[in-house]
Amino acid sequence: MQVLQFIVQGRGGQGAQKAGEILANIFFSEGKYVQAYATYGGARRGTPVSSFIRVDDKPIRLRCNIENPDVILVFDPSLLNETLLKGAGEKTLVVINSTQAPEEFAALGKFKIFTIDGMAIAQANRLGRIVNSALVGAVTGLLGQPDIDLVAKVVGETSPVKVEENINSCLDGYRMAREGRVLNA
């Protein structure tokens, strides 16, 4: 396996850092080497927060920023800007938490674009505004790895409360990603 690199972009308080940790734990549980870090120092509630994850079969030696991500997961369409997308290419999968169709974001560039209404999934599962389990489910569904049973197990283990609700939210996100349509795929 080639190194797999993720950028998760959210706003302080939305759970982007937590989503990064869950993804890191999922791949660690699969036996992979993982490196994950998040924006640090000046982050405040409401300000943009980034989480970065590298996954590989061998130990990860790089200690620098992720410049060419394979996946960009965005918690809020207002965060989609040039700085975030500058390293994205045709093979980059951009997953956007939005009620809109992927075509609405076609002007951003020729990326593989998928949209998912994380808030609707969260509310259907009585999680209020907590969307990270749904989004993590969607990303792993689109990647087709790791196995969904492992993903659901780790989401459960890393949920401090409402374990069943988070697992169901993750499974819903996963299912929608498997059944959904990716623009430019």
Partner: peptide, 12 residues
């Protein structure tokens, strides 16, 4: 060890 890249990086 250095801040951020080592101190706050999750690793195996």
């Amino acid at each position: 060890h250095e801040a951020f890249y080592v101190s706050h990086s999750l690793e195996v």
